[in-house]
Amino acid sequence: MATISAPSTAERIRSACLRAGGAILAVDGAEPETTAIHHLLADGSFAVTVPSGGVAAGLRHDDGDVQAVLELTDYAPLPLREPVRSLVWIRGRLRPVPQSEVAGVLDLVAAEDPNPALLQVGDSDTLLLLEADSVVVADSDGAEAVGVAALLAADPDPFCAMETSWLRHLESAHRDVIDRLTRKLPGPLQHGRVRPLGLDRYGFRLRVETDAGDHDVRLPFAKPVDNAAGLSQAIRILMGCPFVNGLRARGR
């Protein structure tokens, strides 16, 4: 069986949903509004929160189907020349949540993502449900549509919540790791400015900034990993480090 070397599109979207700190909800006939919560529920709908004083918060059950688009932006953990890694658009029908069901929906979201923004619901924010009809992601490789069933079957990357802090630490304190990984790149790219772009259970992504433009390169691990210990070993193997099993060099 061939080894999987990159996350599926559905996995990437699930990770982007968890990682994105904010999003924009556009409702037909109104200005876009910010939403702090955008969580996929088990029935395939997205729980979203909007400012209580906005147009979307004023939806009523007898308004019928209200078309809306939720746009998520996945930013790189580091300040790059082109900081956006991908965009996700979720188009569907927006509806209010009955007051008697709000607490239950919030509990479902909090069980998987205890976001402090949930505490604003009922005060400055209002909870809505977006019943997704289509989901599209676009990045440097192009655009692709993903079905809601595929999203429900996928999981976010196990390291996506820690990715930002890890890559920032790598950039600031372990430049030697980036230098070793740079040697894995095609010759012409080794002379550009190489920065950490992404880290997931399948491998590293590097951004190479050159005068001719930016290039994104994936360096896959030998096999997918699921925990910090496996990740550490996979990175050592990828670097070509001889002490992959925790051995230490002999003292002189």
Rank of each mutant, 00 (worst) to 15 (best):
Y202G: 01
D107M: 02
G230P: 12
Q67L: 12
D157G: 00
Q233I: 13
V102F: 03
A47L: 12
D133T: 10
V55P: 11
L80E: 15
A42Y: 00
A26I: 05
I90P: 11
R250G: 05
R252C: 01
A20S: 15
G21V: 04
G213E: 10
M162Q: 14
L129M: 13
A153N: 12
P98D: 08
Y75T: 12
V121M: 07
R12L: 10
V66G: 02
T35F: 01
G122Q: 12
D200T: 01
L197E: 14
V50I: 14
L129W: 10
G203A: 03
E33Q: 11
E31N: 01
R252L: 13
S15A: 03
D133S: 07
S140P: 00
S172V: 11
F204A: 04
R252W: 10
T3H: 09
W166T: 09
D43V: 06
L87W: 07
F221I: 11
P51T: 02
A117S: 13
I237W: 04
G92W: 08
Q190V: 07
C160W: 02
L127V: 14
L59Y: 05
A145H: 03
V194N: 08
V50P: 15
A56M: 08
G29P: 06
H39I: 09
A117M: 14
V55R: 14
T3D: 10
A76F: 02
D226M: 00
L206A: 01
V135F: 01
D176H: 06
G192K: 02
A26E: 15
L108G: 00
T164E: 15
A161Q: 12
V84I: 15
T9H: 05
A23L: 03
V148G: 02
I90L: 15
R85A: 09
R250F: 07
V225N: 04
A229Y: 02
D155P: 01
A222G: 11
A138Y: 01
V148S: 04
E163C: 01
C160E: 15
A23Q: 13
G192T: 11
G44N: 06
I13Y: 06
A149I: 05
R180T: 01
D125P: 06
A16V: 05
I178G: 00
P83G: 00
